[in-house]
């Protein structure tokens, strides 16, 4: 059985000024081929200006089970949201 190529997570920036967004994953033997494969799989309809690839195994991720201690403490800290300011209409959407 042939060993499977490693999995890569693909991030693409659609326009100047926007951040790279995670678009999916694919397999490739190395980083350069991962970029080429990403170009072929994810930018066929002119979606991209820049591609980042990261080997999936190199990503450290938070664990879903820890969501209580990680996120719930911020639920009752309303003062962290800047909702107490009066914003002039001319500013538009913030």
């Amino acid at each position: 059985m042939t060993p499977e190529w490693p999995l890569w997570e693909i991030f693409i920036r659609g326009q100047h000024g926007l951040s790279h967004r995670h678009v999916g994953s694919l397999h490739a033997p190395d980083a350069e081929m991962a970029i080429k494969n990403a170009r072929d799989v994810y930018t066929r309809r002119n979606e991209g200006l820049s591609i980042w690839v990261v080997e999936a195994s190199k990503i450290a991720a938070s664990s879903p089970e820890e969501k209580g201690p990680l996120y719930e403490p911020s639920n009752d800290k309303v003062y962290r949201h800047p909702t107490f300011f009066d914003i002039p209409d001319e500013v538009g959407a913030m």
């Binding site: 694919l26 397999h27 490739a28 080429k36 072929d40 799989v41 066929r44």
Partner: peptide, 11 residues
Amino acid sequence: PVLEEDIALAN
């Protein structure tokens, strides 16, 4: 042989 090459060849 693999999906990625399939799409690349079709392109």
